[in-house]
């Protein structure tokens, strides 16, 4: 099974990199761009797990390692069974 985990800064945490990207887009004339948040994507291959087992494992590794829960939040999805 392949899962994708998206880690990004919490909404309450200032994202200066996202702001810099937004400003660059504004400079190029993309006025519709209101806000940009930058994050990281992890694609993880898991062997021999059911969907339920993956639903327990993925939040655990995201919380423990992939994201720093003090400043970051995460979302995940199954890409391939």
């Amino acid at each position: 099974m392949r899962v994708r985990i998206l880690v990004s800064l919490k909404a309450s945490v200032l994202d200066p990199q996202g702001q810099a990207v937004r400003n660059a887009l504004h400079t190029l004339g993309y006025k519709a761009v209101e806000d940009v948040r930058q994050g990281k994507v992890f694609e993880v291959d898991l062997a021999g797990l059911s969907r339920d087992e993956a639903a327990r494992l993925v939040p655990e590794i995201a919380h423990k390692v992939l994201a720093n829960p003090i400043i970051e939040t995460y979302a995940w999805e199954i890409l391939e069974e």
């Binding site: 200032l14 200066p16 003090i70």
Partner: peptide
């Protein structure tokens, strides 16, 4: 406690 973010001026 806490965490480090990228410097304000990047």
């Amino acid at each position: 406690p806490g965490a480090m973010l990228r410097n304000k001026g990047l």
